[in-house]
Design a binder for these strands. Structure first.
Length: 108
DNA sequence: TTCATGACTAATT
DNA sequence: AAATTAGCCATGA
């Protein structure tokens, strides 16, 4: 299984109402320095519809910005429907919604 | 094959 | 505190 597949596995496991950061995912995948590659993986996202890429945000809890599967308004809407609330800065409160699994990572 | 770019992050200025 | 630099490496031209 390549790094991409691993990323998809992890993102797929993000529970509803939670979010994860690129760096965190990269770290969970065992490659802390490939945060950017995680971005690429989601950019391609061949499993769109199965992999909730809208639950992946940058380290500040803000949306990818610019483009992301259709527009950040869409992403924002999806997240709100999952119970995630944005603050006045259009950011997610990572202290509450950041997905801290550690145990639920890829089952080796 | 080499070069530039990017849905990133951390450290340095 | 904000801007820049540096590191990572897959992808496309």
């Amino acid at each position: 299984m390549g790094f991409f597949e691993r990323v998809y596995e992890i993102v797929r496991k993000i529970p509803k109402g939670k979010v994860a950061t690129y760096g965190q995912i990269a770290r969970m995948a065992g490659e802390p320095r490939k945060a950017k590659i995680v971005g690429w993986a989601l950019h391609q996202n061949p499993y769109q519809g199965d992999v909730p890429c809208h639950r992946v945000v940058n380290r500040h809890g803000e949306l990818a910005g610019g483009f992301a599967f259709g527009g950040r308004e869409v992403q924002k809407d999806l997240l709100i429907k999952e119970g995630i609330i944005f603050d006045a800065n259009e950011k997610i409160n990572l202290g509450i919604y950041l997905w801290s699994s550690k145990e639920e990572n890829i089952n080796s």
